[in-house]
Design a protein around this nucleic acid. Structure first.
Length: 641
RNA sequence: GCCGCAGUAACUCAGGGGUAGAGUAAUUCAUUGGUAAUGAAUAAGCCGGCAGUUCGAUUCUGCCCUGUGGCACCA
C-alpha cells in the first residue's frame, strides 16, 4: 500500500492522495476535463510542470489557460519554440535569454547578420510546425560540468556564461522539446501543442547582452502570445487603437505642432497647439497661485561656474548645451531651473518666518538627450517644466510634501486621471550627504506618503543623488502608464549654492529644498493629453471650440452673425462658408477634432437656431442660439473657475 | 549613443540604372447642396545631404543628417 499524503485545494477542500503522484495525475483524479485543460500546477505557491510529483502534504492548485499565471507560461513556451525555429532556420545562431514579458515574449539571439522583419513570417511558419509536432516539454536536471560541457560543444558561449554565473547550490535544469533543448528554470506546459495559434511575431530590435551598453548588441525578436486567436486579435486591435491616438499623427491632423531637421527634439508650436499649451500653463499658474506659490523667472543661460558650484557640470556637462559670446565666458543653457531658483531665494535676508517659501517657474530647459531617446513630444531636448522649489525647514518636509501630493492628485483629476500610482525612490548607492540626513529625509517623505493614505510602491536605490523622491505615475484612458510629476527632497543644492535663512535662535541655517514638477514637462503632458483624449479635447482645452458651417451661401450672413455672438461670449469660433457640401465640411472638421460643429441653413436663420453636432456623435440637435451659448459657456469653463 | 527600418509633391504613399506616379490637399471653372468626400481642368518634385561606381544614379555602394521600432540613458 502506497503512502498517502494530504493535499489542500484553493476552495478549502482537501484530499488524501498517493505520495509521488504528478500534477497531471492529480488533475486527472479531479476530472478528465481538467487534465485536458491543465497546463501547470501550483504547489505551496510555487508553479511547477505538471510532470513534477508531489511528495509531501501540500496546498495544490491546478492552473489552466484561464489563469493569468498560465499566460506567462504560454509566452515562455512560445519563446522556446521560437528559439528552436530560429536555430533550425539559421544554423550558427546562438541563443541567450528569452523571457515572457507583458503581452508576450522575446528571445535575444547572437548572430552576425541581424534578423529582418522579412524573416519573421518564415520563423512563424516554422513555429507552427514545431507546435503541431506536439513535442513534450521534458525537464532534466544536469550537473554544472555536464551543462557547461554540453553548451560549449554547441558553441553557445552565452549559455555557458549564464551557467557559470549561477550560484553554486542552484539546480541546473534544461527543458527539451523533441531534439531541441534550452537551459531554463521552467516551468513549461506539457507539450508544444498547448501553445495553440494565439501568437504572432511582432518586431526585431537590438538589445545589449545583459542590458549593459558596454556589452555586445544582440538581436531580439519580440512576439505577442495569448490564450487563443481571439485574444490575439483583440490585442492587435488594441495596438491599432493606440496607433490612432498617436500624438504625432493627431498633432499633424489637428495642426498643433511640427518638428524639423534643423531643430531635432525641439517643438515648433503652431497657433492652435500653442493655445493649448498656454491653457495648461494658465491652469497650472492659477492652481499654484491659489496654493501660495510665487512665480519667478530666471536666465536661460548662466556662466558655467554656477553649474560647477551646483554640481551639475560634473555629472551632466555632456548633456548640457553650451554657448559662448565675445567675452569668452562659457555659458550653459539651463538644463534645470533649481540653481536659478536658489539665486532668487538668496536675494535679501530670509527669516524662518518666510518659510516655507514657494517659488514657481515655468522654465524652459534644454538637455542634450541621446538621439535614440527622442520621441515626438514625449521626449524632447527643449521643454518647459512647471517647476517649483519649496524652501523649508527639515521639520516642514512632511507637511509640505503632503500638500504637494494633495495638489497633484487634485490637478490630475481635472484631466480625468483618477488612477495615480506613486513610486517612492530612496537613497542610491552614489549619493551625497550623511546617512543621518538621509534617514531624516526619507522618514519625513515616507511620513508624508503615509499621511496622504495613498498607495505607493518602493523603488529602492532610485532616488536622486541629493535626496529621495516621489514619482507620480498616471494611467490614461486606454490603460497606459505615464510618469509625470515628481517630488524630490534636496539636501544638497541649497548648501552648495549658499542659501541660508535666519532661524529662531538667530543662527544662520541652510534650508531644505523640495523640487517638484506636477505636469513635469508641459510638452510631454500635452502629448499625453492628446493621446488620453484621442484628440477629443474637452471644450476648455480645445484651441478651436466651434465651427459654424453653412449649408448654402444664402446663410453666410447668419453664420457670421452667429460667430460674432459666440466670439463675444468668449467661445473660440471659426466660420466655414466655403463652397462645399455640408457633409464635406462635417467630415473635415470632425477629422480636425473640432468639438462643436454648428450647421446653419435657411431654416436656422429663420428660427434663430443652430443645428448642433458634437464631435464623435452622429446625432444633431436644433436649439436656440442663446440657449447654446449658455450651455457652452458653462461647459467651456476651465476647472479653475 | 548602439542595432534594425525609413526619408519620393503640402499630406498619405506606390515605383525603380535611361532624370517620376496615385489619392487627398491647393488653384480655376461649373455646381447652392441638410450632417463624415459634388464634378472637371490646372499647376505642383534638387526622389534628405555629400561622395563613389556607371556613358548615365532618384534607383546600386559608402559616409552623414533626420525620423522611427527597440536597447541603453533620463538631473
Amino acid at each position: 500500500m502506497a503512502d498517502l499524503i494530504n493535499i489542500k485545494f484553493p476552495d478549502g477542500k482537501s484530499a488524501k492522495i498517493e505520495k509521488g503522484l504528478s500534477g497531471f495525475d492529480i488533475a486527472k483524479q479531479i476530472s478528465i476535463s481538467l487534465s485536458k485543460t491543465a497546463i501547470a500546477f501550483k504547489v505551496n505557491g510555487k508553479i511547477l510542470d505538471l510532470s513534477r510529483t508531489v511528495e509531501n502534504d501540500s496546498e495544490i492548485q491546478i492552473l489552466t489557460k484561464e489563469d493569468d499565471e498560465a499566460l506567462d507560461i504560454i509566452r515562455h513556451d512560445c519563446a522556446h519554440v521560437m528559439a528552436e525555429a530560429v536555430q533550425s532556420l539559421y544554423p550558427g545562431t546562438q541563443v541567450t535569454i528569452g523571457p515572457s514579458i507583458e503581452n508576450g515574449f522575446y528571445y535575444d539571439f547572437a548572430r552576425k547578420e541581424p534578423f529582418a522583419i522579412s524573416d519573421l513570417p518564415k520563423i512563424e511558419k516554422k513555429m507552427h510546425e514545431i507546435i503541431n509536432r506536439n513535442e513534450k516539454f521534458t525537464r532534466e536536471v544536469w550537473s554544472r560540468d555536464e551543462a557547461i560541457k554540453f553548451f560549449k560543444s554547441k558553441g553557445e558561449e552565452y549559455k555557458v556564461e549564464l551557467i557559470e554565473d549561477l550560484k553554486e547550490d542552484e539546480e541546473i535544469t534544461v527543458y527539451k522539446q523533441g531534439e531541441w533543448l534550452d537551459l531554463c528554470r521552467g516551468p513549461h506546459m506539457m507539450s508544444t501543442k498547448q501553445i495553440g495559434k494565439g501568437f504572432k511575431l511582432m518586431k526585431v530590435a537590438g538589445a545589449y547582452w545583459r542590458g549593459d551598453s558596454n556589452n555586445a548588441m544582440l538581436t531580439r525578436i519580440y512576439g505577442t502570445a495569448w490564450r487563443n486567436e481571439k485574444e490575439l486579435e483583440s490585442h492587435l486591435l488594441q495596438i491599432e487603437e493606440a496607433e490612432k491616438r498617436d500624438h504625432r499623427k493627431l498633432g499633424k491632423e489637428m495642426n498643433l505642432f511640427h518638428f524639423q531637421e534643423e531643430a531635432p527634439g525641439a517643438v515648433f508650436w503652431h497657433p492652435k497647439g500653442w493655445k493649448l499649451f498656454q491653457s495648461l500653463i494658465n491652469y497650472m499658474r492659477k492652481r499654484q497661485d491659489d496654493a501660495g506659490y510665487v512665480e519667478t523667472n530666471t536666465p536661460d543661460m548662466m556662466d558655467k561656474s554656477l553649474w560647477e558650484t551646483s554640481g551639475h557640470w560634473d555629472k551632466f556637462s555632456e548633456m548640457m548645451f553650451r554657448t559662448e559670446a565675445k567675452d569668452e565666458k562659457i555659458y550653459a543653457i539651463k538644463p534645470m531651473n533649481c540653481p536659478g531658483a536658489v539665486e532668487v531665494f538668496k536675494q535679501g535676508l530670509k527669516s524662518y518666518r518666510d518659510l516655507p517659501f514657494l517659488l514657481s517657474e515655468f522654465g524652459k530647459v534644454h538637455r542634450y538627450e541621446p538621439s535614440g531617446a527622442l520621441h515626438g513630444l514625449m521626449r524632447v531636448r527643449a521643454f518647459t517644466q512647471d517647476d517649483a522649489h519649496i524652501f523649508c525647514t527639515e521639520d516642514q518636509i512632511t507637511q509640505e510634501s503632503k500638500t504637494v501630493c494633495d495638489l497633484i492628485l487634485s490637478i490630475y483629476k481635472d484631466f480625468g486621471f483618477d488612477s495615480v500610482r506613486i513610486k517612492f525612490s530612496d537613497r542610491p548607492e552614489k549619493r551625497v550627504g550623511d546617512d543621518v540626513v538621509w534617514d531624516k529625509a526619507e522618514a519625513a517623505l515616507m511620513q508624508a506618503m503615509e499621511a496622504t493614505g495613498l498607495e505607493y510602491t518602493l523603488n529602492p536605490g532610485e532616488g536622486a543623488f541629493y535626496g529621495p523622491k516621489l514619482e507620480f505615475v498616471l494611467r490614461d484612458a486606454i490603460g497606459r502608464d505615464w510618469q509625470c510629476g515628481t517630488l524630490q527632497v534636496d539636501l544638497n543644492l541649497p548648501g552648495r549654492l549658499g542659501a541660508t535663512y535666519v532661524a529662531e535662535d538667530g543662527q544662520k541655517k541652510v534650508p531644505v529644498m523640495l523640487h517638484r514638477a506636477l505636469f513635469g514637462s508641459l510638452e510631454r503632458f500635452t502629448g499625453i493629453l492628446i493621446e488620453h483624449y484621442a484628440g477629443h479635447l474637452p471644450l476648455w482645452l480645445s484651441p478651436l471650440q466651434i465651427v459654424v458651417a453653412t449649408i448654402t451661401s444664402e446663410s453666410d450672413n447668419y453664420a457670421f452673425n452667429v460667430k460674432d455672438q459666440l466670439t463675444k461670449s468668449g467661445l473660440v469660433t471659426e466660420v466655414d462658408i466655403r463652397n462645399e457640401k455640408i457633409g464635406y465640411k462635417i467630415r473635415e472638421h470632425s477629422n480636425a477634432k473640432v468639438p462643436v460643429i454648428l450647421a446653419v441653413g435657411k431654416k436656422e436663420a429663420d428660427e434663430k437656431t443652430v443645428s448642433v453636432r458634437r464631435l464623435g456623435n452622429q446625432n444633431t440637435k436644433s436649439i436656440k442660439l442663446d440657449e447654446l451659448i449658455k450651455s457652452l459657456q458653462k461647459e467651456s469653463l476651465s476647472p479653475i473657475n
